[in-house]
């Protein structure tokens, strides 16, 4: 028997070669970059690359959390509204505190509040899904509407803007950086690496995949199913909080349209990246590639007059479908 084992082991190692299904999203990304280079010489400029990466950061950070939720067989539609609500709340509280305290403590309190309220919002989603047993799709569709109208209400239908002094103090968190790399990019990169490691190399990541693959098997294998599922939503909430902390200093405001459709972009990025929508398999690096693909499409369309702006959505749709088909077809051929 040990003979069989060692033979098969060798065979498995020999069979490791680049597989289109694995690198599919990367191929799409490289193709987009090549198209960009051909269409506009400024595409690869430092400024443009920085812009694209930084604007990917918000949805990217959220999508990392979404990868865990989806891998564990869940879904969260509320993240876009949640981001808007958390941003609105943080701005409101910071403005209210601004008179009575020095700028920096107010800012730190605002950041802490954003993180905590994100965490709490994620916990509410998670607890209602895991304990009350409400279907994730319906529950988060509900909280999506709730957070969206809460932020509209907070803003009185208009825009919540951070006071001038706080905005100046907060500005560097988005516009500043280290060695010419802006903070959102650094935070996004760190979280992506951390997420990838957690997904691939920790018990938590493995448990997420096991639950998404077959919840019953996971339960029979002594996996704390409820706790792990709850944790995915809490982590996602926290990441929404982090995204908001990076987002608010950009324009210093939040309104009813903040974070509109972010949930769909985040979910699309996760799926383009190769994570299964029905759960059971997820990869964070794929999600990062998916987010970059989505941002690059918008960027490319803005950089050219190639197609009518009316067709932007169509181009985006085609690329999303192609990126997914690329994985499916080669997967089936294997």
């Amino acid at each position: 028997m040990s003979g069989t084992a060692s033979i098969s082991k060798n065979r498995a190692r020999g069979a490791r070669r680049p597989d289109l299904r694995v690198i599919g999203p990367l191929v799409a990304l490289v193709a987009l970059v090549l198209i960009g280079m051909a269409l506009n010489p400024n595409f690869l400029s430092y400024a443009n690359i920085t812009n694209v990466l930084a604007r990917s950061a918000f949805i990217g950070i959220i999508a990392i959390g979404m990868t865990f939720v989806i891998t564990a067989g869940g879904l969260d539609l509320s993240v876009g509204s949640m981001a808007a609500f958390v941003a609105g709340l943080a701005i409101l509280v910071m403005n209210a505190l601004a008179g009575s305290m020095a700028g920096l403590p107010v800012l730190l309190l605002g950041i802490a509040l954003a993180l905590l309220s994100g965490l709490a919002a994620g916990f509410i989603n998670g607890i209602l899904i895991t304990r009350a047993g409400i279907e994730a799709f319906i529950l988060t569709l509900g909280t999506m509407g709730i957070y969206r109208s809460l932020v509209t209400w907070l803003a009185d239908g208009g825009t919540l803007s951070l006071g001038y002094e706080l905005r100046e103090l907060y500005r560097p968190v988005y516009y500043g950086g280290l060695f010419g790399v802006s903070w959102p990019i650094i935070v996004f990169a760190l979280l992506a690496v951390l997420g990838e490691v957690v997904m691939r190399h920790t018990a938590f990541g493995r448990h997420c995949a096991a639950i998404g693959s077959n919840e019953k098997v996971a339960r029979y294998s002594s996996v704390a199913v409820t706790r792990v599922k709850l944790a995915t939503y809490v982590i996602l909430g926290l990441l929404v909080g982090i995204a908001v902390v990076m987002y608010v200093p950009r324009l210093g405001s939040a309104s009813a349209t903040t974070g509109l459709l972010w949930e769909l972009e985040a979910i699309a990025a996760v799926i383009i990246g190769g994570t299964l929508l029905k759960g059971g398999f997820g990869r964070v690096w794929g999600t990062v590639v998916g987010v970059l693909i989505l941002s690059l499409i918008g960027n490319l369309l803005n950089l050219t007059d190639f197609v009518s702006p009316y067709l932007n959505g169509a181009i985006q749709g085609v690329v999303i479908i192609l990126a997914v088909v690329l994985q499916r077809d080669t997967g089936a051929a294997r």
Partner: peptide, 12 residues
């Protein structure tokens, strides 16, 4: 008519 979209578009 959205601030974030306008920010991205202006960058580009």
């Amino acid at each position: 008519w959205n601030r974030d979209n306008a920010f991205n578009l202006m960058q580009d």
